[in-house]
Design a protein around this nucleic acid. Structure first.
Lengths: 204, 204
DNA sequence: TCAATTTTTGAATTTGTGTTCACTTTTTTG
DNA sequence: CAAAAAAGTGAACACAAATTCAAAAATTGA
């Protein structure tokens, strides 16, 4: 045995992996999954196409990981809000606001997460992730109903509706067609109000 | 000149076109745009692949037409409801119920309309069509606010949210993953209630 | 029936991309 | 430095699916 990975090498490998992920994220954020061909990812990451396959078994799995990372980060933030203090209405309000603001902030993955075409495997993952988002809201809803803050309702349906509501309201503004959102804060407020009223919370 | 289209031929041509559209609609309804390859469409329509191109300049335009037809039919129904009599709340309620029921009824285009991956041209059209749906609800909202039935709100955002809400709530149930919806009418009622509360209408 | 013309066919071509792999370069250790 | 192993390359390959087009079949009017 005359070769063993040195720590330095180890680091470089991890670095490559990260660069590939970063490049993919960037391309997807800018032009959707469609723009993130393996060759383009490789070029942006500064590696050969073959390299991609040393780190990821397939393009689909690379995409799923990118999507998963993005969703994971988002979920973490939302979950923290959901588990925080304050009334259920406040938390719902904060959660929606937080998500929408971040989505509007700039080139990001939101559009891809919402409607962007991809292959079946990635699509399946996307739908699952949307469900995950719903679960966060569902938790808030259950809590709110228990406290008597919200009227009794079908929490599964409501959670899905909330996710659908704010994502759809974002598609126009952040989609590839529209290039400018006139008044972001107004949109944020509108969506928040809608969701709050929808679950029967105090209209803000 | 020894050839002129006879009325019979004229009819056959129109027939072919219709068969192609129908076959496409059927395939899309069952398996999404992904399943509707040109060859598959041709086979189902009982024509050669070349025929497709005699009637449609490209697959994308064929898809856009199919989507447009489906949306057009849907919009017609919704518009009728929107322009009908009754309170704005009632009309909103009826419109949502009507759409959701039809989407749940069986193999249909709803899923493709909502999230199914396709190429850029079709995707653009889909987003436009979603906007069209929003406009119908926007009209009801404006009316409702004028009558003092709904509180003042950002009608554009609310309309988009409504469309997003009920479509998202449908993705799970009618998507390719889930195969059964436990209780359709319950879902219909849940979505309706959500939307009604969301716009500030009387909770049902 | 025949020739002109159009419609229809489907195999071949084109195209766009994901994936592979024989080869090169780099790294590691004795 | 040399040998062994791994990392890295990118042109070639594979594949699926849209599109084309030369040839075949069908239609029309005389």
């Amino acid at each position: 045995m005359v070769y063993r990975r040195s720590p330095l090498m180890e680091e470089r490998l991890a670095n490559n992996r990260d660069r590939i992920l970063l490049a993919t994220r960037k391309l997807v954020a800018e032009g959707g999954f469609r723009e993130a061909q393996v060759a383009a990812v490789a070029a942006l990451a500064g590696v050969s196409t073959g390299m991609i396959y040393r780190y990821f078994p397939s393009k689909a799995e690379l995409f799923v990981e990118v999507l998963g990372d993005a969703v994971g980060a988002e979920i973490e933030i939302l979950r923290e809000i959901a588990d925080g203090s304050g009334s259920a209405g406040e938390r719902l309000s904060t959660a929606v606001t937080s998500f929408v603001r971040r989505a509007l902030r700039g080139p990001n993955l939101a559009y891809a997460f919402i409607t962007e075409p991809v292959d079946p495997e990635v699509d399946t993952a996307r739908i699952r992730y949307r469900k995950t988002f719903g679960d966060v809201f569902k938790a808030i809803l259950i809590d709110g109903i228990e406290r008597g803050e919200f009227p009794d309702q079908d929490v599964d349906a409501s959670a899905a509706c909330i996710v659908g509501a704010f994502t759809e309201a974002l598609v126009g503004p952040i989609g590839p067609t529209t290039r400018n959102t006139p008044d972001k804060e107004r949109l944020v407020a509108s969506i928040r109000s809608f969701c709050l009223r929808a679950v029967g919370g105090a209209a803000t």
